[in-house]
Each structure stands twice: as structure tokens, then as C-alpha cells.
């Protein structure tokens, strides 16, 4: 029994499991940041369309609602980066490193959250 418990602890150590509640906080922030990034993209694009006439208004709306996959990937990466930067700015990296949590968990959580949102929201927009 004791050997099993030790093995479980070793497994937890080796994968650097993060504190679940804090991981939840990072995921919630990722949702918020991805939404902000996406809204900012649409606002900037529409401002460009209206100010400089780079695209016609219908083309601008279409590009805002259905961005190219390269732009979608870029927005997902930007969201993940901003979540990391926000964690760094509020000094949240060190304690979790001291708890043995591998930083990859938080990057993966941010990226996956943004990716899932991107795919889900885009699927909804395609249906409209």
C-alpha cells in the first residue's frame, strides 16, 4: 500500500501536476483574454476598413467574422502569450515553480482554451 502511494507521488512529481484551482483561474483568464483579442481584432479591422478603405464594408465584416486560419492561429498565440505575460506581471510564475508545477501545463491550458474557443465560436459563426 505504502509502495503504491510512493509510486503515485513519484508520478505526480514527474508530471509536475499544477494546483487545480489555479489552473482553473488560468483557464478562466484565457477565455477572457481570447475574447478580448478577438474583439480587438474585429474592432481594429473595421477601423482600418472605415478609415483607410482597404476593403469594402461587406468584405471587412466577412474578414472580421471569418478570418483566415493563419490569422486565427496568430490570435490564439497572442491570447496565450498575453495570459503568460499577465501571470508574469502579477508575479504568479515563481510560487508555482516552487510547487513543482511544470510551466508547460499553463502554456498548454492557455493554448488549448483559446484553440477550443476559436474552433467552437468559428463553427457557430459559420452556421449563421
Amino acid at each position: 500500500m505504502r509502495r503504491t502511494t510512493e509510486r503515485t507521488h513519484l508520478a505526480v512529481d514527474s508530471i509536475g501536476l499544477p494546483y487545480p484551482r489555479y489552473l482553473g483561474t488560468v483557464i478562466r483568464r484565457s477565455v477572457l483574454v481570447w475574447l478580448l483579442v478577438r474583439i480587438t481584432y474585429v474592432v481594429v479591422l473595421m477601423a482600418g476598413v472605415l478609415s483607410f478603405g482597404l476593403l469594402s464594408l461587406p468584405e471587412g465584416i466577412s474578414a472580421g467574422l471569418h478570418p483566415a486560419w493563419t490569422i486565427r492561429v496568430f490570435l490564439v498565440m497572442v491570447a496565450a502569450f498575453l495570459v503568460w505575460w499577465d501571470r508574469r506581471r502579477s508575479h504568479e510564475l515563481l510560487l508555482h515553480a516552487n510547487l513543482g508545477a511544470a510551466p508547460g501545463w499553463f502554456w498548454t491550458a492557455s493554448l488549448l482554451t483559446a484553440l477550443v474557443l476559436d474552433v467552437a465560436i468559428q463553427a457557430i459563426l459559420e452556421m449563421l
Binding site: Y19, R21, T25, S90, H91, E92, L95, H96, L99
Partner: peptide
């Protein structure tokens, strides 16, 4: 060392959890 945003209790709980 501690995050400015989270309460001290929340951060201590993380240590206890781990």
C-alpha cells in the same frame, strides 16, 4: 514570491495541496 492578485490564504492552500 506571492502573487499580488490572489489572497495569501489561496496561495497557502496551493502549498498545502501540493
Amino acid at each position: 514570491l506571492l502573487s499580488r492578485r490572489l489572497t495569501v490564504r489561496a496561495q497557502i492552500r496551493a502549498v498545502e495541496w501540493r
